[in-house]
Design a protein around this nucleic acid. Sequence first.
DNA 1: CAATAGTTTCAATGACGATTGAAAGATTCC
DNA 2: GGAATCTTTCAATCGTCATTGAAACTATTG
Lengths: 180, 180
Amino acid sequence: MHNSRLEAATALFIRRWGEMGASWGISRTMAEIHALLFLTTEPLCTDDIMERLQVSRGSASTNLRQLVNWGLIYRVHQRGDRKEYFEAEHDVWQMFEIITRERSRREVQPIVETIEKCLEMISQDGDAETTPRAEAARRRMAAMHDFFSTMNRLFNLMVKVGPRGLSPMTRAIEKLQRLA
Amino acid sequence: MHNSRLEAATALFIRRWGEMGASWGISRTMAEIHALLFLTTEPLCTDDIMERLQVSRGSASTNLRQLVNWGLIYRVHQRGDRKEYFEAEHDVWQMFEIITRERSRREVQPIVETIEKCLEMISQDGDAETTPRAEAARRRMAAMHDFFSTMNRLFNLMVKVGPRGLSPMTRAIEKLQRLA
DNA sequence: CAATAGTTTCAATGACGATTGAAAGATTCC
DNA sequence: GGAATCTTTCAATCGTCATTGAAACTATTG
């Protein structure tokens, strides 16, 4: 490997991807491993990753497992080799779907359920006089709930139309907007 | 205040909002303060927040400043009172716009710029023979770049149609999808 | 079945960001 | 101006979460 520009570009991308991950609540190393595998054509083994990213075996193992768990990378086996190799999901659209769906399931579902519970709790007071205070809180929680369900529907729609459809669709609506 | 169900619901919502924030890279306390102000009708002062959330004056001050910085809460003044009070942006849609725009500016713009830089770096090798390896990396980075710009356009569109428009629009497209 | 190769686990450690509280800095009031 | 009230700052501390590395575990090989 003597393609130094490619190496430099790869390193730069990996660093930034790691930083972005960190600020979105994903461990820097996990994001870096993901970036490395995303850019690399051939599958890599644990030792490759340890060397390229200078991390311990334990960390590599843990983070790889988590990435497999998310569905963002796959375990692959090389014929005639005992080692396990890893390969990333390379389709950006697929990645988006996976990440959004997982985060939704793990992190927004709980809050949606909580909101529902809260709404029940508040409206049980409704037998008595509803205080303005309670009514205001109820309305805001309801608005939040609506927001999440609209976003959820929109996401499902995006997944359905897919990347091929989304861009033209967006453009079409933009055009309609401009006319209106 | 004797509306115990409302209090319980509020506390529950705040706790969960804080947890969600934490897993999205926002400090738990900052998210909790935001939730408290979101649910409360009248503006609150620093001492109210310290008491309700059991945090120090320093922490309250810092987190409030950050929230003001994000544009998610406003400083308001009560006539005949020297204290500063805080009020949240109560419109959920507006909140979404603010959060998305800020996160985009702070956290996705840098990666987009990095991708552009990387693409340049790689294509400068293009004078020489482009290795398959470099070509694969280039293609993936380009796909990622496309993804971000599509998402950006979609976001602008959503903001333009607004909440009133989005839900019907989504439904309309869903219907078209079902027919196709 | 023992030896070898590879992977996972987990207690200890480390790094980093958040929080605290007291001191310094503003602002308003008389 | 200076006393009173409120806010911000920041060095020290605390808590949390990721990482380390060695030991335990699993799976292949001859």
